[in-house]
Design a binder for these strands. Structure first.
Lengths: 189, 189, 189, 189
DNA sequence: AATTAATCGAGACGGTACGTCATGTCTTGAT
DNA sequence: ATCAAGACATGACGTACCGTCTCGATTAATT
């Protein structure tokens, strides 16, 4: 016997409720009870799916369809511009802006969460970058592949810090592409 | 009537207690009650000195001598290396590593805190960078002064994200100086 | 169309499970889920038979043969002793001791339940007492029939309170018969 | 250093809130949150004073001023009438009627509570009865002192069961005094 | 034999209460 | 006016229970 299967609509309703509440009220006011109420769902259904509020919000906000796949523009600077756009969209969507700092803070407290985040978010982005760098090497734009961690820090870091630490509006991300491409070229020379 | 003057040893005892608790248990377990207990101090004494837990931990963890002043090395790349070193030391000290994500999260929740932090930390660093960039323009290394916010995002972002988001050990920061200098040159050309 | 008939063994398995859980853990820990699990039965099967946990436990714990029928001993004091014995056996069986206070509490909360209980348990006992009193009047032992509610309160109350409120072991119930018979005689004089 | 002393008004405000809620909505709706809200008190203040909801309601409902002291009327039947009145007032006051079944149920679950109840309520009442019986023996109304537990069961049980189990309105308790006095006389002959 | 319909165990669902914990404020008596 | 101690209001968290509902499988009586 398998028992009653989990209802389909709940995951979606919860994700929607989380994003709405984050946008309306911020991470602090985004209560588990409020989420359940907004989604028309009992708290038990939430904790059956996610082990804590952090996991719940994380799952709602880190959308799986981000980083769909590497886009090959034929030149390193074009690829960098693409990556920057994807990174920005994944850090600046509705809800993410408000949630991310709180989420990153919760990561430190829960090793399980940290591992999941590293694997699902950082790891996938890293793989994308490695492909991009390897293509540039194959094309002859880079003499050797630079340390992917350093490249990751430069690209993700610039966008993430601009949005979440400096607190100033960020213009079009493409404007950064030439400068950051130059940095990558220096690392790969 | 001036009343009893504030006791001297409290600030130091509190800073020590905060750092110990951060190292032992992380930001979440670093409770205000725990801090007061560890420091042998009443909570009122804490809130008489700092307005919130975030201010308290911030004061305990960010050393004021971090941004002592701009060091003029005579060349842009040297200045960048200096700045990176200062940034890293201010983000990677004992306690900061554990505290910073939680601190940044609290910042979002409280606009007052955000303003204070922006002024005291971001603003000072920004001023430092502007001096550095102006010197490079004067020297002829840059055709014009690039947007300081962008430069700030690149330098602070790379270090901050490497340490606090990627979760991988960061090598000597000087190795990044050439690449990030190249980025700045591109922005200022 | 009649569909699949109810399985035979379920009632018995449930009663056994309820009694075991009451004895092991008391009324509070005697959860509906625990009962279902112990009896190897789904919760739906329980709620198909009884409308609430209170009904379920009540049915499991109160044996229907308790109030089999009035026993005519030929004298009021003998009848009282019989009634007391029946009352005690219905309040002191295995499981009842642990369950009754919780059951009575649930009764207060649900008027439907209260009505059902009153009819099935109190009412039947009351009818028995009325028969007994009428026989005594017919015999000439009582001048008139006293208020059956008062008699009920005296007989049931003494046993019920001794067992469930005073918390002290109760000796043979026959010892009480002369005293309580005297009380009834006073009421009926 | 002793710290801030507990506020005086809280105990009283809580007791009042509990009684009001019990009278308005019954034991089930008498939530801890509702009590705290009605009393204008935080939940922490409640759990600082009582370890559970049961202890809280118990303290609010079992008033210490009940059973102020034995009243000597000069005759056993008068004393019995007095005791019955006191017992009834302690079981039928505002709030008690609704709370008692739930409270008695909770007693079974918590041995600490059971001990407290036995000592503070049953024990005090028992002592009262013993005095009453000894006076009757001294007066020559009884040949010997009957078992106080049996007397307790008869007096408390009749009233308690009438109110809380039979669910019928109880007339003036004095009407029971002659009958129950006869029972006691029989036990003490 | 095929259909129909009520049952079965398993377990997810909404609702609601509980008891714990953290923050920032306030109140003692003492210094 | 400050100190240590600790009580206070507020409000979120995660757990537990109840009674309902849904699933696929099983079982008989009716077609």
């Amino acid at each position: 016997m398998r028992g009653r299967p989990r209802e389909d609509g709940i995951d979606g309703a919860v994700r929607r409720a989380v994003k709405e509440l984050l946008a309306e009220a911020g991470y602090a006011k985004c209560t588990v009870d409020a989420i359940a109420g907004r989604a028309g769902v009992g708290k038990a259904a939430l904790y059956r799916r996610w082990r804590s509020k952090a996991e719940l919000v994380f799952a709602a906000v880190v959308h799986d369809d981000a980083m769909a796949g590497p886009a090959d523009t034929g030149a390193l600077q074009g690829d960098v511009a693409e990556v920057l756009a994807v990174i920005k969209s994944s850090l600046d969507g509705p809800g993410v802006r408000e949630a991310l700092p709180g989420l990153v803070a919760d990561l430190r407290a829960d090793p399980n969460l940290l591992a999941g985040f590293g694997e699902r978010f950082i790891g996938r982005e890293r793989a994308y970058l490695i492909e991009m760098l390897d293509r540039a090497v194959a094309r002859g734009e880079l003499a050797r592949r630079p340390d992917p961690v350093a490249v990751h820090a430069i690209l993700l870091g610039t966008v993430h810090t601009w949005i979440h630490l400096l607190g100033e509006p960020m213009g079009p991300v493409r404007a950064l592409a030439p400068a950051l491409t130059a940095a990558i070229r220096t690392l790969g020379s």
